[in-house]
Each structure stands twice: as C-alpha cells, then as structure tokens.
Design a binder for these strands. Structure first.
Length: 114
DNA sequence: CCACTGACTACTT
DNA sequence: CAAGTAGCCAGTG
C-alpha cells in the first residue's frame, strides 16, 4: 500500500461522528492535493477491509457523489442516523457539518483490518 | 506503454 | 444554479 492510500485511510477513520469531509480535503490531508478522485476509488476498494466510515465523505458542494441510487440512499440514511440533516435528497450544509481540521498525526494512528 | 475510466475540483459561461 | 472544460492520478486491460 502506498503512502497516499495509507494516509487517506487514517484521515477517513479520524472523521468524527456527525461530521463530514470532502474528497478534496481527504486528498489534501493525505498529502496529494489533486488526488480527490483516488479518494473515491480507494473508498470503494478499502471500505470492507478497514471498516471505513465511507458515508462521511461527500463532494465539495456538500452532495452525495454516488451515482448508484441505492447506494446514495444508504449514505443519506447513515448520515441522518448521526444527526445530519439534508437540505434535499442528496445535499447537506457544509457550513454546519464540514469537519474543520488542518493537520493529522498519522504516526499516532494504527490501522486495523477487520 | 497507451487509452480509458471515474464516489473529484475549480473555473467559465 | 446548470452545463461545459480542463486538470488530476491510481487501477485496469
């Protein structure tokens, strides 16, 4: 596993319940400012293995980015269960729910496979 | 190695 | 706010 992937996983695991992060922010914190698309890719492939809170990641507009209808519904359901309210079917207010973080101590986090 | 594909973004119209 | 455009980069065939 490369550095970017490992850090991105740690970032995602660090997002507190009831808060969200954008793909771009995850990529930035993981050390690859333009790697937003890879974040989506690895969420898809690493969620099962590392038990990631994948639903806490939305796009820069505060919208659910999943294209598959059933999956986007599931994400909305999971977020509402954490107290996040939706402005419409797929949109939340980033002003209220975006996790404000500037740095993460990666060395302090241990990865555990499920 | 080349071409194509996105759970993306920022900028312009 | 919607639609188009140009970068982005790891995975895949």
């Amino acid at each position: 596993m490369n550095q970017f992937t490992e850090n991105a996983i740690k970032v995602i695991l660090s997002v507190p319940k009831g808060k969200v992060l954008t793909y771009g922010k995850v990529a930035l914190l993981a050390g690859s400012p333009r790697g937003a698309r890879q974040v989506g890719w690895l969420l898809n492939s690493m969620t099962a293995k590392y038990n990631l809170p994948w639903h806490r990641i939305v796009n820069a507009k505060g919208k659910i980015a999943l294209s598959h209808p059933h999956a986007s519904f599931e994400q909305r359901h999971l977020l509402e269960a954490e107290g996040i309210e939706f402005k419409d079917e797929v949109t939340i207010d980033l002003k209220n729910y975006l996790w404000q973080v500037t740095h993460i101590d990666f060395d302090r986090i241990e990865l555990e496979t499920r």
